[in-house]
Amino acid sequence: MLEKEISFEPVLLSLNGDQLQSEFLAINPFHHVPAIVDQGFRVIESLAILDYLETKYPAPALLPTEAEALAVVRMVQMTVTNELFPKAISLMFETEDSPKLLQAKEHINQVLVFLTECLGNSPYFASKQLTLADIVAGTDMSLLSKLGFSFNNYPKLKDWFERLMQREVWQRTELSQEDFEKFKRVLRMLHRRKLNQENKVNNHE
């Protein structure tokens, strides 16, 4: 919304419980963020929100129209969402000697190699201008960076990420390390809560 200069009123939620309140559940019964409400119309799920905003507010355009370029944008969005993000999150929960940690890092490497191929020699994914692929990938690459993951073995992605982080909007919205540590604590708490619930169910069975 900032890149498109769409006016909006942000509503901040504490994931310690705000997402479970009836007011928010009326917007998203699955208690996930983000969600938007635009003149009474609610949209949940990040990719759906991006598509909605791109269609309703088409300028500046953040999607290419050429078939191959559009396919690259969609591939990057889906690969980051389905393959990169879950493994990045798992880095927060696994111990250094965990086999799952090694598997996660190997999978992340595979994703980053694929993203490097998708980027090619373009300054942004499939375009000389920012696209929705950059927004989705940049968010999760920022997560990896804060977790201490180095991009030195992926020089094109490293240059792209540094270029993205130099944009004014990204500098305005990037989490501080302090806020990121709070984010990690909340995720770990939610993860423990989920494990406890699963254990209770297993014990009951």
Rank of each mutant, 00 (worst) to 15 (best):
Phe149Leu: 03
Ser46Tyr: 06
Leu20Gly: 05
Leu157Asn: 02
Met189Ala: 05
Arg167Met: 06
Asp159Ser: 12
Leu63Pro: 08
Met189Lys: 07
Gly40Met: 10
Gln129His: 12
Glu168Leu: 07
Phe149Arg: 05
Pro60Asp: 08
Thr79Cys: 11
His32Lys: 12
Glu106Tyr: 08
Gly148Arg: 01
Lys194Val: 09
Pro123Thr: 10
Gly17Trp: 14
Leu164Arg: 05
Asp179Arg: 11
Val80Arg: 00
Thr95Leu: 15
Val186Lys: 08
Ser22Thr: 10
Lys56Tyr: 04
Glu96Gln: 13
Leu2Gln: 08
Thr116Cys: 10
Val11Gln: 05
Leu115Phe: 03
Asn153Arg: 14
Val33Cys: 04
Leu91Val: 12
Leu102Asp: 06
Pro29Trp: 09
Arg163Ser: 05
Ser14Tyr: 11
Leu115Ala: 02
Leu164Ala: 09
Gly40Ala: 10
Thr131Phe: 00
Glu54Ala: 06
Val76Gly: 00
Ala48Thr: 04
Ile44Leu: 11
Lys146Glu: 03
Phe93Lys: 04
Ala71Trp: 12
Lys146Leu: 10
Tyr52Val: 02
Lys128Asn: 13
Pro99Ala: 07
Gln103Gly: 11
Ser176Trp: 13
Glu9Tyr: 12
Pro64Trp: 04
Gln21Phe: 11
Leu15Gln: 12
Leu70Ser: 09
Ser145Pro: 09
Glu94Asp: 15
Ser127Phe: 01
Asp38Thr: 02
Thr81Phe: 06
Pro64Gly: 09
Val113Ser: 07
Ser22Ala: 11
Leu12Phe: 15
Gly17Thr: 14
Leu144Asp: 01
Val80Pro: 00
Trp170Glu: 09
Ser98Pro: 04
Phe125Asp: 02
Val169Ile: 09
Ala67Ile: 15
Leu62Gly: 02
Lys4Leu: 00
Glu117Arg: 12
Pro10His: 14
Glu198Trp: 08
Leu119Ile: 01
Thr131Ile: 00
Pro123Gly: 02
Asn16Met: 15
His204Ala: 11
Leu15Gly: 10
Gln166Val: 04
Phe8Ile: 07
Asp179Cys: 09
Glu23Gly: 02
His191Pro: 13
Arg193Lys: 14
Asp38Arg: 02
Lys100Thr: 07
Gly17Glu: 12
Glu162Asn: 13
Glu54Leu: 03
Lys184Trp: 01
Asn82Tyr: 12
Ile108His: 01
Glu3Ser: 08
Pro155Glu: 04
Phe161Gly: 00
Val80Leu: 02
Thr116Val: 14
